[in-house]
Design a protein around this nucleic acid. Structure first.
Length: 353
DNA sequence: AATTTTTACAACCGCTCATAC
DNA sequence: CGTATGAGCGGTTGTAAAAAT
């Protein structure tokens, strides 16, 4: 573990590999000289490089990345090796298919911590900060752009909190309910879901469920998911995914059962933005200290009791589903998609929060 | 079917901060 | 205290694949 600094003591198991890499990148005849002025490889990692890195870490462990890179015979910076290992080669790393629950967690944790990707990633086992950052930038920020508002603006945050996240919860519940029913059927008929659709190994699954349930269980005053509604990963099988075939304009790698797109429409966005004009206690309606304030329960109550629950937004969606993004013809979404009555009603509801 | 554009993501860079020596 | 190293972050770029034309 405490390998001396510098290149001494290198007992590279991958000398052949590194030679291949050199040949591949071409042009190296005198390795001694190159060690002095080695131009490092950049860009995508080759299979050989991956193997060399994995082999070395398997034998020597990780850490001390600069010396590791030298000792493993990799013409890469230590930083590059570290990144490759942490974001790609690590055995427990998971990529793609960000599930409903993970999306919800990301939104929730980001609303709490901002761009602290590493901290957020700690609560999504197997996910890297880089992937979460990419998710945020490519999906969430993209829609902020389309909304023509800053991703850090209150408008956009309200859109997420009042519309997207409650919708996500609803869909998680729906997926869980469908899954439960399907599992019962599947148990009877002994039909197993395809292995490739299982996003979690058991450990990761358990860990993740803990985090996600923390958000969803009513005991934590989050969202008011009923107590019998155990959060389960959304295995998108043909059997249990009612929306599995739906287009996923929020990203092809997102879990097929959901993304934010479905509940993002110009009208709903406008609704959230208008909410913004109303004073709300805090940005973190469900992330305040001790989880005391602001819950989906609250919102279900405020909206649902008055017939202004998520169904309302859904209806609004349906009315506008010809221009899902409001970016095609409508120009500024606030121009023509905001219903004055809706605005008034929303403000009335929110003034009670 | 071929070409162009868009998208998603891996990877990099520059910087800051913490820690060990 | 200075230096080396690891870690983390925000921003950006390169590229392969998918989607659109």
């Amino acid at each position: 573990m405490d390998m001396a600094k510098g290149s001494r003591g290198c007992n590279s198991p991958s000398s052949q590999v590194s030679a291949e890499i050199l040949n591949e990148t071409g042009s190296h005849d005198h390795e001694e000289a190159e060690d002095q002025m080695m131009d490092l490889r950049r860009g995508p990692w080759t299979v050989e490089e991956d193997l060399a890195l994995m082999n070395y870490i398997a034998n020597h462990g990780e850490g001390r990345w600069n010396s590791l890179a030298r000792c493993a015979g990799l013409k890469r910076t230590g930083k590059s090796c570290r990144l490759r290992w942490l974001n790609y080669l690590r055995p427990d790393v998971r990529r793609g298919n960000i599930s409903l629950e993970e999306q919800l967690l990301i939104l929730e944790l980001h609303s709490r911590w901002g761009n602290r990707w590493s901290k957020i990633a700690q609560h999504l086992p197997g996910r890297t900060d880089n992937e979460i950052k990419n998710y945020w930038r490519t999906r969430v920020q993209k829609h902020a752009k389309q909304l023509k508002c800053d991703v850090n603006s209150k408008q956009f945050k309200d859109t997420m909190r009042y519309l997207w996240m409650p919708r996500l919860v609803e869909r998680i519940q729906a997926a869980a309910a469908t899954s439960t029913a399907t599992n019962a059927t599947a148990t009877k008929s002994s039909i197993a879901a395809p292995a490739t659709t299982h996003h979690f190994n058991n450990n990761i699954n358990n860990n993740f469920q803990s985090s996600a349930q923390m958000l969803l269980q009513p005991s934590h005053h989050h969202f008011g998911v009923s107590s019998h509604s155990q959060l389960t990963p959304s295995y998108s099988t043909p059997e249990n995914s009612s929306t599995a075939a739906s287009s996923d304009s929020f990203g092809t790698q997102v879990s097929p059962v959901s993304d934010l797109t479905d509940y993002y429409t110009p009208t709903t966005a406008a609704a959230a933005i208008s909410v913004n004009n109303n004073p709300t206690p805090d940005n973190s309606y469900f992330v305040q200290a001790n989880h005391q304030v602001g819950t989906y329960d609250n919102y279900s109550g405020y909206f649902g009791n008055q017939g202004f629950g998520l169904e309302h937004f859904q209806n609004m969606d349906e009315q506008n589903n010809n221009d899902q993004w409001g970016t095609v013809d409508s120009g500024d979404i606030s121009d023509n998609l905001w219903n004055v009555e809706d605005m008034w009603f929303l403000q009335q509801q929110l003034s009670n929060i």
